[in-house]
């Protein structure tokens, strides 16, 4: 090294700002933690793989059964409103005919039970004043 080179190289360089140390090391630490979390996720994944790997066909069969159960369940749930929509409400003629058949059946078996709707009302609740007139009469 000649004199010129020595003269230049002796010039002291600027010092690194003191505050940078904490900031840079903190950034490095944050990054390392993230990597550790990723590594943890990887460990969990490899653990699962270790559990599932010895009998992959058994696990695949179990998964297929579950998929089948869900599919059947879903398809049945899907059909029920469609079935209800297929039946239209009975026509008034049909209702009248059914009532007539019911009445005839009741007469034939001699039943004295008549539907509430057809039974004559023996006592109709009245206001209290009318009730008092009835008692005094």
């Amino acid at each position: 090294m000649n004199e010129f080179e020595q003269k230049i190289s002796r010039r002291p360089l600027r010092q690194i700002p003191a505050g940078w140390r904490a900031e840079i090391l903190a950034a490095a630490d944050v990054n390392r933690r993230k990597i550790r979390e990723v590594t943890f996720a990887g460990t969990v994944a490899s653990g699962l793989r270790r559990i599932l790997w010895p009998n992959p066909q058994a696990w695949a069969g179990l998964a297929a059964v579950w998929i089948l159960i869900f599919a059947v369940n879903f398809s049945m749930r899907d059909k029920s409103p469609a079935v209800a929509e297929k039946f239209s409400p009975p026509s008034p003629e049909m209702v009248a005919e059914l009532k007539q058949q019911q009445r005839m059946f009741a007469e034939l078996i001699g039943s004295r039970d008549v539907r509430d709707a057809d039974r004559p009302k023996l006592f109709v609740p009245q206001p209290r004043s009318e009730c008092a007139e009835f008692l005094t009469a």
């Binding site: 900031e23 840079i24 090391l25 950034a27 490095a28 630490d29 990054n31 390392r32 990597i35």
Partner: peptide
């Protein structure tokens, strides 16, 4: 910072 993050 990039260098030290990489090293970490």
């Amino acid at each position: 910072q990039e260098i030290f993050v990489k090293l970490a």
